[in-house]
Design a protein around this nucleic acid. Structure first.
Length: 442
DNA sequence: AATGCCGGGCA
DNA sequence: TGCCCGGCATT
């Protein structure tokens, strides 16, 4: 009684009751369907980016065979070329992975093409020697580049930044392998969690087989290599610079990680680019950057080719971090892409939709989102389970859970649209009550 | 702004 | 329990 029906009523309650009751009773099924989930999601833009962290990690290839001979200029050129390619590709790759979600549209395609199905997992095994071909990146346009076939392989070494995500968990398994080779691997695991401060320590690690000596100065490491491994006694002059090939710079920690997360997010797009430069593992040496790469290559498939190595690693680490965040983001992720650029990243995108249907997965796939997932897979399943992964992720963040709930609005027209406000009486009861439409369920 | 619906209030 | 509606998420 009280509520007055005054001015405010937009709708008339007047007619509604009568008609319906009689004729429509039929269609209206008095029950409410939606038992569960019912909550609305609120999204947060909080997390953003995680994607890029990669740069932070600079580790390098761990084990390298040492080529005793120095490369001729030709090789050098080759290396340069490769290096360039790698860099380019990498730069792109980031996009993929981090923004994956959002980007999914465009990129996703690419991904899929390459190895979409590739199940991430399996594919990786190949070890072809290709360094990389990832090409994924749409833009890259490298006609000449050979990437296609090899690509699969290449990923593996790199860790499948993007693919991994997609697929599943292949990555997981791989990680270990990489790590195994070197002790360096340790860095990855730990760093993420631990590293947070800015320590920025740079060390030089001897890559000579079975050596692994780490020194804090280039001079020291060079001397070590020269004397211990190359058997040269003369100090500096004698060297032809070959020592450079046998050691690598290692950065311990970096605040970059922290920064990366926060700052990166926005930049996601550019993400990659930035990382490489600053952190630059190679440059420090003073020697031609190229030199680094060469050594590894010589080995043939050694994963870690100099230049790539660092990146590859970074990628992984990034992933970890990312997925960590993902959890949070799970909620909002998806939305990001569409409108808000910065927050967008949240990979979680996939999640939201996923929700109720249980199978929306299909669309999730694109989400590279899974990058994050990549991680999880490694642990438990190999596949099929994005869902589970998702869950796990969600678990971390409380909010994520909620997100799932609200059902996605069906695209089909509902009573309101079909009959219009004028014919409100023709609506199903649920619609009249502003509940989920029972007549036109999706 | 229009829709679709959840979460609640009221009778 | 049936009706409604405030409000919020989405489109």
């Amino acid at each position: 009684m009280l509520s007055g029906s005054a001015p405010g009523d937009k709708k008339d309650s007047s007619f509604r009751r009568k008609i319906l009751s009689s004729q429509f009773a039929v269609l209206a099924t008095p029950e409410e369907q939606r038992p569960v989930d019912g909550k609305r999601v609120s999204r947060d833009p909080e997390t953003r980016s995680v994607s890029l962290l990669e740069q932070k990690r600079k580790v390098v290839s761990s084990s390298i065979d040492v080529p005793h001979t120095r490369r001729s200029e030709e090789e050098a050129d080759m290396d340069k070329v490769t290096a360039a390619m790698v860099l380019t590709s990498l730069s792109t790759s980031p996009l993929v992975r981090s923004p994956p979600v959002k980007v999914s549209e465009g990129l996703s395609n690419s991904w899929k093409d390459n190895g979409p199905a590739v199940p991430f997992t399996p594919s990786s095994n190949s070890s072809s020697g290709g360094y990389w071909s990832w090409s994924a990146p749409s833009d890259q346009s490298n006609p000449s580049t050979p990437s296609p076939p090899l690509s699969a392989d290449s990923f593996k070494p790199f860790r499948v930044p993007s693919l991994g995500g997609v697929g599943s968990g292949p990555t997981g398994p791989e990680d270990p392998s990489l790590d195994d080779q070197d002790g360096t691997s340790l860095l990855f695991d730990e760093p993420i969690p631990r590293k947070r401060k800015n320590s920025m320590k740079v060390m030089f690690k001897c890559l000579w087989k079975n050596c692994g000596k780490v020194l804090s100065t280039t001079a020291g490491i060079q001397r070590h290599i020269r004397t211990i491994h190359l058997g040269r006694s003369c100090d500096s002059d004698c060297s032809d610079g070959e020592e450079d090939f046998y050691y690598t710079e290692i950065k311990l920690n970096t605040d970059s990680v922290a920064d990366g997360l926060s700052s990166l997010s926005p930049a996601s797009p550019s993400v990659l680019s930035p990382p490489p430069p600053p952190p630059s593992p190679l440059p420090p040496l003073s020697q031609p950057p190229d030199s680094h790469r060469p050594p590894p290559p010589s080995n043939a498939k050694e994963p870690h080719v100099g230049g790539t190595t660092p990146l590859s690693r970074s990628a992984p680490s990034a992933l970890y971090l990312i997925h960590t965040d993902h959890a949070y983001q799970a909620t909002a992720p998806v939305s990001i892409p569409s409108s808000s650029s910065n927050s967008a990243d949240s990979a979680s995108t996939s999640f939201t939709p996923t929700n109720s249907s249980g199978f929306s997965i299909s669309w999730q796939s694109p989400p590279v989102t899974f990058t994050g997932k990549t991680v999880s897979p490694s642990k438990s399943q190999g596949f099929g389970e994005q869902r589970s992964q998702t869950i796990s992720v969600l678990s971390s963040p409380p909010r994520a859970a909620t997100a799932l709930s609200r059902k996605v609005r069906g695209e089909g027209k509902k009573c309101r649209k079909v009959y219009g406000m004028e014919n409100r009486d023709m609506w199903c009861t649920a619609c009249r009550w502003k509940k989920a439409c029972q007549r036109f369920t999706d």
